[in-house]
């Protein structure tokens, strides 16, 4: 009887102490504004140098979507017009530092295939494998002063789409490019990025 009592007491103590003990830190999120945002006001003109694309399926050209973003969507974010870069025109004009900001880069795609079980057919009792694609896009982007040639901002942004339908390359790319451009805008505008810190209890 005594032994049982001791065991019960020790279990109670363990639970009580356990409930009192806590982890030493809390994770907290703090919104931060990037220090390295571009001083857009400094630049009078913006020119888009068409993005080089690599390793895309031959039947799909992502060029028009990319151009549309840089020539239509980006100006709305910057609140400044962005024109297509024309080297001859720019060479003839006398530019000074801060006059023209070039926006360009390259974008490459890597497709990895894998076999997965078809869910619909599995419900009917059939084990059929189907091929799906994993699309990974890597986008190197730069914002470059046209006179000094210095990059005022450059980043590599990556994103992936793990169950891409090989018959819908336009949808796969649009989905990825939307994520990438959102990340890009947040980065260079320094919009409400979140960072994590340890708050000690």
């Amino acid at each position: 009887m005594k032994k049982i009592n001791i065991i019960i007491l020790s279990v109670i103590i363990t639970f009580l102490v356990g409930s009192c003990s806590t982890r030493p830190v809390n994770l907290v999120r703090i919104p931060v504004k990037s220090v390295n945002t571009i001083n857009f006001l400094k630049y009078k003109n913006f020119a888009y140098v068409p993005i080089k694309v690599e390793k895309f399926p031959s039947e799909y050209d992502p060029g028009p979507s990319i151009d549309y973003f840089f020539l239509n969507d980006l100006p709305k974010t910057l609140k400044k017009p962005v024109s297509r870069y024309e080297p001859e025109k720019e060479a003839s004009s006398e530019l000074k530092e801060g006059d023209l900001l070039l926006i360009g880069g390259d974008l490459s795609l890597e497709i990895k295939e894998r076999n997965v079980i078809d869910d619909d057919k599995e419900k009917k009792g059939l084990k059929v494998f189907v091929k799906i694609e994993n699309w990974e896009v890597s986008f190197n982007v730069y914002f470059r002063d046209a006179v000094t040639g210095k990059d005022v901002f450059s980043r590599t942004i990556k994103d992936s789409y793990k169950s891409a339908d090989r018959n819908k390359p336009d949808y796969n790319f649009e989905f990825l490019f939307k994520n990438i451009t959102e990340k890009l805008i947040r980065l260079f505008m320094g919009l409400g990025r979140m960072e994590v810190r340890y708050l000690i209890k």
Binding site: V25, V196, Y198
Partner: peptide
């Protein structure tokens, strides 16, 4: 924990540095 906080602040102050893998994990956890 303090060391990690300080290194993250230094990264924040140093343009061009991306969040480390550990911070990405913490963000996902949160």
């Amino acid at each position: 924990y303090i060391k990690r906080n300080l290194s993250r602040l230094k990264r924040r102050m140093n343009p061009g540095m991306e969040p480390d893998a550990e911070e990405r994990k913490d963000l996902k956890r949160m």
